[in-house]
Design a protein around this nucleic acid. Structure first.
Lengths: 267, 267
DNA sequence: CAGTGGTCTAGACCACTGG
DNA sequence: CAGTGGTCTAGACCACTGC
């Protein structure tokens, strides 16, 4: 191993909070080396240096690159794998997670059929009702951290399983990162919408937060979901985030739960 | 460190699948040392050797006890901490997680007020409607992995926040592990029900699986929740598990979502 | 100050994959 | 067979807690 006298261009040594201000709180947080490495890897992911589905360099290579031991790189990758940003495959390498894989399709969709398993009803049919460009209202602006006046894309679609419409969704996206997205491209793409976002716009959804309520179907909703007005529906409001917790999508879903249910593990 | 010649009473060496049957698949799975250690710690937890809220021995002590390095014990504890079974506190020790802590009260309850934070409405009022001992139907038996004919305890209660009834719950428990549980003890206990289970019956709920639907309030439900018949309610069916994935509780909850919502993080 | 968990390193060896 | 991630060890040192 090389001596540590060599200056590191990327990393600060993990020094403790020796900030100027000594009194009155405001102590600089101690940041371990592996957290700094994690941040650097995160930056490379966001910058697209390694694309979804591709492998990242081996642990030993990264250890050389960052001038730390393999164990430290390993711990950084461990956390990123636990957050589903990376995928380790023994003997093969470490890969950037993607929404395009067959195994984890609909990874963010918690709705499953009451009987049978996910996907047992065959592929979902996607039906784009509309897609337009507007200025968002205050609600949407707040959720997406936009300035008032910023443009957004709004889409509405229906997902059907086995021929039955089950999900009605309104989707809002900031217009800037999704420049060029049209109803046609949405309609023609086969596969999860988030996979299209990855390949076409270099936007990878990493985590999401959902707020769930029970509501009664309006006339419009009932029509699109071929059910009666007043039918109880699951209202699922989702904000999806990219790397570094940037909000990138607001989605308001209405789920029929007569043949499906929302499944959640809590611990 | 002592030589490894010393026979280990508890552990098999992490040998690979050299089982008798060599052909026809059925290869014995390779189990790393730290997984075996994790299993032993799990056994001690289930046996009540260390009780909720107490500290377990230090990593170095456990390393001596199990005759492995501290790093191996550490990895076992890491996983148990990630699963919320243990709680690490730097400088103090490692503690058995509990539902009785102030910080994590209602850890399994995902319902939060639309405005304000969890607990901002003051403490929840718990109202036991009934508690009786019966034979369970097939549904409940299946969920709790009981034999038909086994006795169960059934309770119904209403939870109110800020004076408004928000949650109606039906709860089923296997009678055997909860021998002696009565409506009075439930009603008199202040604090989360799962905390009572820990202290009185040595049953610790570790994880749960919830199935969520939207339903219309029945007459009985509407009365107890002081709302109108047909009001959309969130139906939350929960199966809660103890150590080693033993199902120990079935709970059917009905949540009003006019002032609260079910919050979920997905990644 | 001693004791705890947390970080970092270095090296040996194992399990798995694919050419 | 070489290359990858996975396990295990041993030791040094750091950060945090409480006496």
């Amino acid at each position: 191993m090389p001596a540590l006298s060599d200056p590191r261009t990327d990393l600060k040594p993990p020094l403790s909070g020796a900030s100027v201000a000594s009194s009155a709180g405001a102590t600089a947080a101690f940041s371990p080396l592996y957290q700094q490495i994690k941040g650097l890897i995160l930056n490379s992911l966001r910058a697209g240096e390694w694309k979804p589905g591709e492998s990242i360099p081996s642990e030993t290579d990264l250890a050389v690159r960052y001038r730390v031991s393999q164990g430290t790189v390993r711990k950084a990758i461990d956390e990123l794998a636990a957050e589903n940003l990376l995928l380790r495959r023994q003997g093969k390498g470490t890969f950037v997670a993607t929404h395009a894989e067959q195994q984890v399709q609909f990874r963010f969709l918690r709705l499953v059929p009451d009987s049978g398993t996910r996907g047992s009803e065959g592929p979902a049919q996607r039906n784009i009702i509309e897609c337009r460009r507007t200025r968002a209202n205050a609600d949407v602006n707040r959720a997406l951290a936009l300035r008032s006046g910023d443009q957004v894309l709004q889409a509405r679609r229906v997902l059907s399983f086995g021929g039955t419409p089950v999900i009605l969704e309104d989707i809002w996206l900031p217009a800037a990162p999704f420049k060029g997205l049209t109803a046609e491209r949405l309609a023609n793409y086969q596969g999860p919408m988030y996979a299209l976002f990855e390949t076409e716009f270099n936007v990878r959804m990493v985590r999401a937060q959902e707020s769930i309520r029970a509501v009664a179907a309006s006339a419009a909703q009932a029509t699109l979901l071929t059910t009666a007005v007043g039918t109880p529906l699951l209202s699922v409001e989702r904000v999806a985030y990219t790397y570094h917790d940037e909000p990138m999508e607001l989605r308001r879903g209405y789920y029929r739960t007569d043949t499906h249910h929302y499944q959640n593990d809590v611990s």
